[in-house]
Design a protein around this nucleic acid. Structure first.
Lengths: 205, 205, 205, 205
DNA sequence: CATGAATGAGTGTTCATTCAT
DNA sequence: TATGAATGAACACTCATTCAT
């Protein structure tokens, strides 16, 4: 038998075993010592699998985001309209279920804002693209199916930015008391402008 | 008699003399020692004027923001339409002139995202309110003057969030290559939906 | 009129105005800044009257001890037997009334234990002598009046040390639960050995 | 495999190597940096073995006290009477041999007097109990063997406190010129009161 | 392949004292 | 005489990373 362990597998295993601790304590206040202890390995071993503390954080955010995306995809499939889908998409920013991941995302954003690290930017870009393409497809499909005016296409980038912006404002100020309400109101207001009313749709037909 | 010093003035002077260094090095990686040295004072003196390192950051952001707001107000007065005003408002996020302040704002956001500090939140809230009210008034005036449909009012919060969100995305990813273009495109797209065309306005008359 | 103020008087006045603060905060955790503020003078002025922070502490402990001694003297005059007097004397170590001064004394002892400062030792010696002479006189009088066996004289130094020792033990351990009880028990036990019983006294007569 | 180190042994080794420096400089005026340097280790390593500066002091006092107790026990076994044993017990406070440990004990007392630290109090309590029980047993045995009057039992707590009190007074004042003499005088005076004279003992028989 | 002992530069903050006015 | 602005040495403590085993 090969003594050689699948490094990637173990890497992932280590990252996942730190999940609870990181979600509980937050990124910045956690030490490599406690991460290694939580994973049941030595500090030296930690550095065999991750080149730095930040590397594990990225790995974990990555894993958790992918987990989250799978669940979200299923939920989105259950939505009937683009309006609902966007709302469902935004729910990450306020839902109780995503509370812990959201906290991680906040800390991740905080790092990303001032990091010059190439990998960090690369990773954030991948996230951005992933979600942007999602919304993009979603809107385009809705236009094709006659649910939305074709002008809606122009609002995609704005749509995406709006959610993140409002989230950040809710987190850094005390003025957005009810993010869920405010976000949904925004979505409704915009969709009211670009949605093709049912009766008109029928007229078209 | 004792040396009389205008504490507020000196406080401001110290903060401003640290500006260059902070813009160059970034906030988090800078030490109180180097800040004091940069300001030409002792570390002890630093703490005579600021209760903590973060306090200096606030002071600086505060000073520069107020400077910026005065200039911005004048520029806004030179704009003829709400559309132009919003664009002018957003220009903070990309204009060369505001490059330095933007840099500072980024660092400030990074801190604010994970800070639990009451004063920090208070300060960010004040900033939020200041700009929000600005946009609010701007839009309401435009509705009153028949420039915008009354539905535009619903988009105010979103408008504000959109700018901040897109800015953050441009900073943390490499996907928003031209923030100026993207932002302006967004504004145009939205205003095309809520602006009352000139000919209609005339018809109204 | 002489502008020259009576330095000693002002010195005392400053010390006394810091009394409350010192009793409340303790010696070690207090700064010159807060002392000066409490006294309503500048920090520079403070050093016009006291050569160091410790100097004020000594001055104050001195003043307060003398205050305390006057009160104690009156109380002692109200006692009928040497046994009672010693008990009254020891009551400093546990009575509620002396709680604050006792705290100060503790801190003072802590400093005195490791201080090489001549003045400090001088001061503590004066305290020592003051109390020692008190007890000495007290016991000698009691022997003269036939209240105590002459052997009691040999126990004076021990008597004095015993109180301080038991006090320190009560403060530094959790084993002396009831200092009042333990101290009084000790006094009683010793006096039972050296007190001349009334009936014997009468026989003598 | 990792380097295996007997942590307890190294802890002890570090503490002992700081002994000289502490005795020379005193505890309070010594920095962790200099302690680490003295022990030939890094500052970080220091904190691997001690959770705080005070912790090293405890360790050292602890080690030296235990060493001291073993020696003392042997010496006490060589004493024939309770009177001699108490004197031997007190000799810690003045003997040349214990000079160093006494110095440390002084510093330890100084800390203990104002410390609120649970562990500190716990440790001092253990010391207290250890010695108190020693004296207790010693006296009780002497009563059983007919050496002392049973009333001697009442004086145990006082006996113990007396030594510590007189020691502190000798350290903090210049009035106890010869502690050895004074302490022994005290012991003799008390024992003269509670010792059963030989001839009486014989009568009893 | 795994370890964890060792590290030391770096941190923010305090405060008794000085001295120019 | 009175001041309080200025100081800077000193402090305990942290932690990502290395490397000998």
């Amino acid at each position: 038998m090969a003594i050689v362990v699948d490094k990637d597998r173990k890497r992932e295993k280590i990252a996942l075993s730190c999940k609870e601790l990181i979600l509980k304590e937050g990124i910045s206040s956690i030490s490599v010592a406690s991460l290694a202890k939580e994973a049941g390995i030595g500090k030296g071993t930690f550095y065999e699998y991750f080149e730095s503390k930040d590397a594990l954080i990225f790995e974990l955010v990555n894993i958790l985001m992918q987990e989250h995306n799978l669940k979200k995809e299923q939920k989105l499939n259950g939505c009937n309209s683009a309006r609902e889908k966007i709302k469902e998409f935004y729910s990450f920013f306020y839902s109780k279920d995503d509370c812990e991941l959201r906290r991680l995302y906040k800390e991740f954003l905080s790092i990303a804002l001032i990091s010059q690290d190439e990998k960090m930017i690369e990773f954030k870009s991948e996230c951005f693209n992933f979600y942007f393409n999602w919304i993009n497809t979603l809107i385009e499909d809705a236009i094709k199916s006659g649910e939305l005016l074709s002008v809606a296409k122009d609002l995609i980038k704005g749509m995406y930015a709006l959610g993140e912006g409002m989230f950040i404002q809710s987190v850094t100020t005390k003025d957005i008391v009810n993010l869920e309400q405010d976000l949904n109101k925004c979505v409704d207001d915009i969709f009211d402008l670009v949605e093709i009313p049912r009766n008109i749709k029928k007229e078209k037909e």
